[in-house]
Amino acid sequence: MSDVIVVEALVKHYGDVRAVDGVSFAVRRGEVFGILGPNGAGKTTALECIEGLTAPTSGRATVLGLDSQRDALKMKEQIGVQLQASAYFNYLKLREILELFGRFYRLRVDADALLAKVGLQEKANTVVNKLSGGQQQRFSIAATLVNDPQVIFLDEPTTGLDPQARHNLWEFIQRIHKEGRTIVLTTHYMEEAQALCDRVAIMDRGRIVALDSPDALVRNLESPYEVRFTVSGAAGATALASLPGVRGVREEGAGAFTLHTADTAETLPALLAWAAHHGARLVKLEVTAATLEDVFLKLTGRALRE
């Protein structure tokens, strides 16, 4: 069995709010699976249904073949869960919390080894609220490891962290992934999904609107590249639109243009030839690949972060 998580037609309504509105997907063993979407898309609710924390209105989820509702206790033995912005007991030291959480699984854990894994070995006798935001997130990842789980859920692990702390956390996530664990994470940072995830489900308004590897999602865009430049002299949008490969032209004003193209190898030489022919000078020429941000925009008509 290569699918460790199977989600089938999951629905969760809170009154009239359809937080999760019919979601199905499967997570393969050993992959990092991302759920990307804006705040309020239903990512956390979907995750909590899978973790057995919330009872779905309909549909079901299984983790390692165990039903999230019927076999909840057995299933919880096998998974590690980090909640979004969850705290730990205020008056216990890090080592004590990990030993206590280990005992929740009826295990004796080596708390110091776990702390060392996330670079917090020197904080063993510190309380949680004396840690920085990044350290707290690292600690909560260490806490998901007390039962040595094969499947780990991380809900917005880097939200609220500065870029350096975020990159630092990515390293720790990649490290525990390399130990052979399957990781499911939610995020609203497309860089995070792109950097960490083998596959990404893009979620919006309770539904999954696309699911593939980040590269494939971008590649499948009609025009996955952008060519931006400013041109001196006369230039017509109509002429630019007829260049090979170009799928769209956007005039940004003051001679600035953005071309959306399916194939930069075709478009660029043609663009340069066109400029030479008209005696126009191209300044600030740049070529960029589209991102998941563009994918989201394309799929939903809205920006990821609004």
């Binding site: 973790e51 057995g52 924390l53 206790l73 057995k74 919880k76 033995e77 998974i79 869960v81 909640l83 912005a85 969850s86 705290a87 730990y88 007991f89 205020n90 959480f101 929740f104 699984y105 039962n147």
Partner: peptide
Amino acid sequence: VYREQKIFKRVLATPL
């Protein structure tokens, strides 16, 4: 405090 800081939920995610 346990409810506000989601400590209940975190404990609920374990088999305790």
